[in-house]
Design a protein around this nucleic acid. Structure first.
Length: 906
DNA sequence: GAGCACTGC
């Protein structure tokens, strides 16, 4: 009987975490909560139903095993743990067998919900997991519905009379006995407190029974009988169904009423609500308004709605709102659509790369800022917008800065257009100054206070300081509350996670459990999910994170933040064209943002691993805006296309160095995008159509002439997102290396290797499993797939790619050569020659000494390749060229005739 | 023979 403990314990856990085990999309949550209430109502009318279901006879179990084809023995013998694990497919979960009716109801709702979602948003809106989830649920539902007579199996032989009829009295007696037995079992096996409670209840009822009078007996009889009728067959099935549907409907109506009511309530309770009229007056009065609203003020969701209510969505004009991140645009749009009572894509829509959901009905449109920059290309005046809100402007992304510059120009041309810039407190003044002293409107946020602690002395090693602090918090703070640690990169995060795990193991039993969750952008998504799992009771979660948790991710339950005070930042050197990733002190704004992450659920604490003096004196106020530390060739081309010719005098909020701009112009000239007078050429206009780096778009243009457009499209799509393509697992280092080596191409260097990977990915049917087996990031390849589709469309529009795929079969070597030439057409400015000694390379343009990166297929090639082009120059331990390809001198001479001196190429 | 902060079109 010892096995039964596991059985019941497991079942309780399973039904409690049923949602989590199946990992439903979060928007199914409401279905679940409403479902719970429906269940309650139903079980009220059919009292005792649940216990009956639990109390299944062996015959039933056998039937179920036959039905579902698995061999789960509910009388546990120790092996059940595995059979009942959450990883099991849904069909094998025991609760679906034990409570068919209940689960069928839930399933039906879920399937309906999925279908609605597909009807609303199209099949493409579902992720691959969602789709297979949907499919498996639908199948299960069908299976269950085919066998919906399974209730019959609940009737063992001895309830049935010789004439084949059910003896109600007998059945009542039997079931009652079984229920008692069941209860008895539970009493023996439940957790201790529950046992006590159950026993008390039992004793009470016994006491009652012993002293019952007639009415009590009658009641018991009535109770049992009604319950029997309800259960067996006295209510015809269709009537029963109707009743259930009615209850369901009532519940849904009630739920909807509550939802609308609660939306109104929530909207009114947001801090921004009090300022509604004032805000609208200010927008009316001024063309530009800076709104300072801290997190939790509700500005992102409410402001567009207020503007809509005030009539800014009339006369065919719409209200736009930009976000720096895709997920933000989508999720905010979904929420506002819900509040407005419309579907996403109807009145409220969004527009992000690869996914546009708006229509002619759309009046409130959320979008990524990059998407709006692209919209300028097709509509220089943004004629359809009456108001634009630039949200999170303080983050100063490259795209935001470009938008601000463009708007400053546009506002003069369009006096009717309103601009609202939403920013954090710290640099509101700067935005105001930039827009000729635009008024600043303050909306208070709603955040809990965060107590800040500094170290007394500077910490030499913040990693070990962080580890010690984690244990200090874990041991000294008795209350629950998770810890979030900010470090600079993957390496540090992994080291710290290992160290924490090791120490925890040593102290096992002496301290409370610690759940360690590393998180960084390159971590595979399935491992990223772990940080969102609720912390088990009595344990503490320690999330070790990069900057990703500063803005992009929000983790619930964080009370303590540990901040190392550093960031990794990409620095671009315009003189050398070299990029490097450097660990630098983070800004005050970042430090405050990090601290703020502790105050989301309640008052929090932030431990800074540096002194107050450092915070006050050493940290820069704001992070360096992206526009000052990136290559601007693409930006310059885009702005030239918008008719902005004098970039050196363009009024940027932070002006990029002249060196960067001149370098961009030189490169564009070399590529043929500009002529000698610095005017945009036809080639330049075409290049600007592609959302890629100008050198890559030039390669695409060249590939069309060389009839290898498809191949180059694949390579370009892969090059866009190179950093995260390979999975380098520590444990299986050799296997990963071998898998990657199978794609190598010595002739064509890294570019043809990428093509090879792409082709094999296509052959695999875009299989995630194939990626996994070959140590490749599915996410990266999936993105390349989307990019390629988009670039293909642009190529067709420009007539570079014909629709008929009857390209003549060619010798693979010829094709490879053509591909390499096309790449050279874009990349000749980034070429290098082997030095006479044969151990290093020298760039042709600046005569810098550089090396082939060890991750390249051409690294250590024998004999070494004499002439190469490189995709990027990175400074890590040494000056490296990443993604290199061999080239012929005559190609360089051909494409770079305006760029190279003749003697350079000899 | 080295190493990958984070976004976005």
């Amino acid at each position: 009987m010892s096995g039964n403990k596991g059985r019941f314990g497991k079942r309780v856990r399973d039904s409690e975490t049923w949602k989590d085990d199946l990992d439903l999309p979060s928007d199914l949550e409401s279905v679940h909560t409403s479902k719970k209430r429906i269940d309650k109502k139903v079980s009220k009318t059919t009292d005792g139903n649940e216990e009956k279901n639990i109390d299944k006879t062996d015959a039933v179990l056998d039937e179920e095993q036959m039905l579902f084809g698995n061999k789960i023995s509910l009388e546990s013998n120790g092996n059940n743990g595995a059979a009942l694990s959450p990883q099991q497919p849904i069909e094998a979960l025991p609760h679906t067998l034990e409570l068919p009716k209940r689960e069928v109801d839930i399933l039906r709702l879920e399937v309906t919900h999925f279908q609605e979602r597909v009807a609303r948003n199209g099949l493409t809106s579902l992720s691959a997991e969602d789709k297979s989830e949907f499919q498996s649920r639908k199948e299960l539902l069908q299976k269950l519905q085919q066998n919906n007579h399974s209730d019959n199996y609940l009737l063992p032989d001895d309830y049935i009379t010789e004439e084949g009829k059910i003896d109600l009295a007998k059945k009542a007696k039997a079931l009652k006995m079984n229920m008692r037995a069941e209860r008895k079992q539970r009493e023996n096996e439940w957790y201790e407190n529950q046992i006590n409670r159950a026993q008390q209840v039992n004793q009470l009822s016994k006491l009652k029974k012993e002293t019952t009078d007639e009415t009590e007996i009658k009641y018991e009889y009535v109770f049992d009988k009604s319950h029997m009728i309800d259960y067996v067959a006295d209510v015809p099935e269709d009537e029963m169904k109707e009743l259930e549907n009615k209850i369901e409907l009532e519940e849904l109506i009630e739920q909807e009423e509550k939802r609308v009511y609660s939306i109104e309530e929530t909207k009114k309770s947001l801090p921004v609500f009090q300022f509604r009229d004032e805000l609208l007056n200010a927008v009316k009065k001024y063309q530009v308004l800076i709104v300072v609203g801290e997190t939790g003020s509700g500005k992102t969701t409410q402001l567009p709605q207020y503007l809509y209510e005030a009539g800014y969505g009339k006369h065919g004009k719409i209200i736009g709102c930009t976000q720096p991140r895709r997920v933000a645009a989508v999720s905010v749009a979904a929420r506002v659509a819900d509040e407005v009572g419309t579907r996403v894509g109807d009145k409220v829509g969004y527009s992000i790369r690869f996914d546009e959901r708006s229509s002619e009905n759309t009046v409130i449109k959320y979008m990524t800022d990059g998407m709006l920059v692209r919209e300028f290309l097709t509509d220089h005046d943004l004629a359809k917008y009456s108001v634009m809100i630039i949200d999170e402007a303080h983050e100063r992304t490259l795209q935001t800065d470009i938008l601000l510059g463009l708007f400053k120009d546009l506002l003069k041309k369009r006096p009717d257009l309103k601009l609202i810039i939403s920013s954090a407190t710290i640099n509101a003044k700067k935005f105001s100054d930039y827009f000729d002293s635009a008024p600043i409107f303050n909306v208070p946020g709603r955040r809990y206070p965060v107590e800040i602690f500094y170290t007394q002395q500077p910490e030499a090693n913040y990693l070990s300081a962080a580890i010690i602090t984690v244990f200090q918090i874990h041991i000294s703070q008795n209350s629950a509350g998770d810890i979030l640690v900010f470090l600079t990169g993957q390496d540090e995060i992994e080291t710290m996670a290992e160290s924490l795990a090791e120490t925890c193991k040593k102290l096992e039993g002496q301290i409370k459990e610690m759940v360690i969750c590393p998180i960084y952008a390159n971590l595979p998504p399935e491992q990223q999910k772990k940080i969102f799992e609720p912390t088990p009771k009595g344990a503490r979660k320690v999330v070790i994170s990069t900057n990703i948790a500063e803005t992009s991710l929000t983790i619930d339950g964080i009370v303590y933040v540990i901040d190392c005070g550093f960031v990794k930042e990409n620095i671009y050197n315009a003189t050398t064209g070299m990029e490097s990733l450097e660990v630098l002190p983070c800004s005050k704004a970042s430090a405050d943002q990090r601290a703020g992450r502790a105050g989301r659920v309640g008052p929090g604490k932030c431990f800074r691993l540096y002194t107050k003096w450092v915070y006050l004196n050493d940290l820069p106020r704001n992070p360096t805006p992206e526009i000052l530390r990136t290559d601007l060739t693409g930006v310059v081309l885009l702005m030239m296309t918008l008719g902005i010719t004098d970039l050196v005098h363009f009024d940027f909020m932070d002006k990029p160095s002249t060196k960067t701009l001149v370098k961009a112009l030189e490169l564009l000239y070399a590529l043929g995008a500009l002529n000698e007078r610095g005017e945009l050429t036809n080639i330049g206009i075409k290049m600007a159509m592609f959302p890629t780096k100008p050198m890559l778009s030039k390669s695409l243009l060249a590939s069309s002439e060389l009839k290898c457009c498809d191949e180059v499209l694949s390579i370009v799509s892969m090059l866009e997102d190179t950093g995260s393509l390979f999975v380098n697992s520590k444990e299986k280092k050799e296997m990963a290396k071998n898998a990657h080596a199978s794609f190598h191409s010595k002739i064509g260097g890294d570019h043809l290797t990428l093509l090879q990977i792409w082709n094999r990915f296509v052959e695999s049917g875009f299989s995630p499993q194939w990626c996994h087996d070959n140590f490749l990031q599915y996410k990266a390849l999936q993105k390349a797939r989307n990019v390629k589709k988009q670039l293909q469309r642009i190529c067709r529009r420009l007539g570079l790619l014909s629709d008929d795929r009857q390209e003549p079969e060619r010798d693979p070597n010829t094709t490879a050569l053509h591909v390499m030439r096309a790449i050279t057409a874009g990349y000749f400015p980034q070429s290098a020659r082997l030095s006479p000694r044969g151990d290093t390379y020298t760039t042709l343009s600046r005569k810098q000494p550089v090396l082939i990166h060890p991750s390249s297929t051409l690294h250590g090639a024998v004999p070494p390749v004499k002439l190469i082009v490189y995709h990027e120059l990175v400074m890590t331990t040494k000056e490296f060229m990443r993604h290199v390809m061999p080239v012929q001198g005559k190609w360089l001479a051909e494409y770079g005739r305006n760029y190279f001196d003749k003697k350079d190429l000899l």
